[in-house]
């Protein structure tokens, strides 16, 4: 589905990504792990066209434009950014409407997508008329994921969805992601909490210093010390 080849990105003189190769297959949930500052968020931003980069990214067999996030989103690649990126002054309903921006804010297709999202996150149904900024962190993360799902993604990318959330809420969100993946949605998940990500992932890449330090099969990992070695490689 997603094929990343030789992806590199720089912030001025600092090389944030160096010749990254990565794939996400159909129906796969792939985790990207690594310490702070390893380049995980830059990787997602580069794939999404939000950060300038070199290399080649293809999705469903066609190359993605390198600097047009809106064009990439129209191809069905949707990112839930770090820090959620919800539109705080808007209501939950308006945020969800923006998720379905490409089909407009109404109609049967919109209603069907909305019903699907509200069935995944029933708490959002109670909050539709509430301003998004006034919700709890967990609810905001649900909204961020729900908004992304309103776009009916062909590939969902999430940047640290567990950041700053209570374990119970994280579990709820991760279980929903696992269910979506089981229904056939490919997911690329950037996550610092390795045990959490590996519980749901089919494969994982460990990134350190902007490079792929290892590609691992979660079921073959005997201990997290083994992962930690890659972190500090």
């Amino acid at each position: 589905m997603l094929d990343v080849k030789q992806l590199s990105a720089r912030y001025g003189h600092v090389e944030a990504l160096h010749l990254i190769d990565l794939t996400v297959g159909a129906n796969e949930l792939v985790a990207v792990l690594g310490p702070n500052g390893a380049g995980k968020s830059t990787l997602l931003r580069s794939i999404m066209g939000l950060t300038s980069s070199s290399g080649r990214v293809t999705f469903a067999g066609t190359a993605l434009p390198r600097r047009s996030a809106s064009a990439i989103a129209r191809r069905g690649v949707v990112l839930v950014p770090e820090g959620r990126g919800i539109f705080a002054p808007m209501t939950v309903a308006e945020n969800l409407q923006l998720g379905a921006y490409q089909i407009g804010g109404g109609g049967a297709e919109f209603a069907a997508r909305l019903q699907h999202v509200l069935s995944l996150f029933p708490r959002l149904k109670e909050r539709l008329s509430q301003t998004a900024g006034s919700m709890s962190g967990g609810e905001q993360q649900m909204l961020a994921v729900g908004r992304a799902l309103m776009a009916k993604p062909k590939l969902l990318m999430l940047d640290e969805p567990s950041l700053g959330l209570a374990p119970k809420v994280v579990a709820e969100i991760m279980e929903t992601l696992g269910r979506l993946n089981a229904e056939g949605l490919p997911i690329l998940l950037v996550e610092q909490k390795a045990p959490l990500a590996l519980k749901f992932a089919h494969r994982a890449y460990v990134i350190a210093n902007g490079r792929v330090a290892a590609e691992v099969n979660p079921r073959e990992i005997k201990s997290y010390d083994e992962l930690a070695r890659y972190y500090f490689s």
């Binding site: 996030a69 949707v78 990126g85 919800i86 923006l98």
Partner: peptide, 22 residues
């Protein structure tokens, strides 16, 4: 739709772009 897009990118240009807003 236009107005909602404006409010969206005033909050976060990146998040708005990632939703397909030009």
């Amino acid at each position: 739709r236009f107005g909602r897009a404006l409010v969206a990118f005033s909050g976060s240009e990146d998040a708005a772009r990632a939703l397909g807003i030009d």
